Computed example of a mutant assay.
Amino acid sequence: MIAVTGATGQLGQLVIKYLLQRAPSEKLVALARDLDKAQSLIGSGVEIRQADYSQPSSLVAALKGVTKLLLISSSEVGQRFVQHKNVIDAAKEAGVELIAYTSLLHADTSPLMLAAEHVETEAYLKQANIPHVLLRNGWYSENYLASLAPSLANGGFIGCAKDGKISSAAREDYAQAGAAVLTSEQSQGGKIYELAGDESYTLTDLCEIISEESGQKIPYINLPESDFVKALESAGIPRPFAVVLADSDKGASKGGLFDDSHDLSKLIGHPTRSLREMIKASL
């Protein structure tokens, strides 16, 4: 059986969608902290089980009979490693034969503050001596498209990435990759996939596409990191998350969000979705 943690989250729901295209529904398990949020899966044939990263006692039972597990990284920055450790320990006790873990692009060399807990998790997977495959996901294109509406309203797109190249991809592309790995007939233990979009762009490039598609001139305005944090806070983003976003932009300026391996498109068997296409759809 194949199980997916965080199955009601944005990525988890999409992974389940693509797994259903590749495997019988009775072989799939959706793990969710809040079962009420899994109502959309009722009738799909997928088994729904309660599992909470922060409640180790719930995890071993939830993983009973599971052979392959997609461990989608927790969204709770600062608590991620402990939560991931709980899942890994439970998976080992339950006899899971393969863990696929959604890490961060080039986690071992990344300048992003987000990398630290991913590096800890990768090290613990190795220490736990359980077969695993690392899906080192790059940036989601949706992360920047979320700023499309306010950028149009304010006449400018702000950030602190300077001219750093970004190789983002659609969340659906990463979900397809997870489903492909979990259903592959080839042994996946020990593999590392650096997953990123086929095209790379700067935020200036992004703004040029937005301008062309919207008919409104949208310049890229590069700010000092501290000013970008303040701007995000003034827009209603909680400071801890604003700091993470600004640090990620700063990391992009150092090459932290760039990759040209094309591992992602090779894995899913088609080109990743273009940025222009996604901007058109968002507009």
Rank of each mutant, 00 (worst) to 15 (best):
A175S: 07
A149V: 07
G138P: 06
L182M: 01
S184R: 00
K191C: 12
L148D: 01
P240W: 08
P150Y: 02
A235V: 10
I221N: 04
E213K: 10
P150W: 03
I192H: 03
L245I: 11
L105W: 01
D227N: 12
K217Q: 15
L112T: 10
P111S: 12
A175N: 01
G215Y: 09
V181P: 00
I130C: 07
N222C: 12
G197V: 03
E122N: 08
I209G: 06
I209Q: 13
E172A: 14
A169G: 07
P238M: 09
K217V: 15
S187G: 13
E172D: 15
S167F: 01
P131V: 05
D173S: 10
I158R: 02
F157Y: 04
A175F: 00
S141M: 09
H118C: 10
Y124E: 04
A116D: 13
I158Y: 00
E233N: 03
K230N: 10
L145N: 00
Q188K: 07
K217E: 11
Q188D: 08
G156W: 06
Q176V: 15
E213L: 13
N129Q: 13
P238A: 05
E185N: 11
N129E: 15
L232E: 00
L203T: 06
G197A: 04
S200V: 02
V119E: 03
I166W: 02
Y144E: 14
F157I: 02
P111M: 10
S151Y: 00
Y220C: 06
T183K: 05
F241Y: 14
P111C: 09
D108P: 03
K162N: 15
E208A: 09
L134P: 01
V244T: 12
E212C: 11
E208Q: 13
S187D: 15
T183I: 07
L206R: 05
D247F: 05
A149G: 08
Y193K: 09
Q176C: 12
A146H: 13
N222L: 05
P224F: 09
G236V: 02
A149L: 12
L152N: 07
A107T: 07
E120R: 12
K165H: 14
I192C: 07
Q216Y: 13
K165A: 14
Y144D: 13
D163I: 08
Y220I: 04
S110I: 04
P240F: 11
E212H: 13
E142S: 09
E225N: 10
L195N: 01
S184Y: 03
I158W: 00
M113Q: 15
S200L: 06
V181I: 10
V229G: 02
V181Q: 01
L148Y: 05
S151N: 04
V244F: 07
A235H: 12
S147M: 15
N143V: 11
Q186H: 10
E212K: 14
N143S: 14
L145V: 02
A115C: 03
V229L: 05
L148A: 11
V133I: 08
L206Y: 08
R239T: 06
Q188H: 10
T109K: 14
E213T: 09
L135P: 01
Q186C: 13
E194P: 05
P240A: 14
Q127W: 06
I237E: 04
G138N: 06
L114T: 09
T204E: 04
P224L: 14
K165D: 05
S187V: 12
A116N: 11
P131C: 09
L152T: 06
G178C: 01
K191H: 14
H132T: 09
A128G: 08
L105Y: 00
L182T: 01
Y144H: 15
A169H: 01
P131G: 06
G190S: 07
P219H: 03
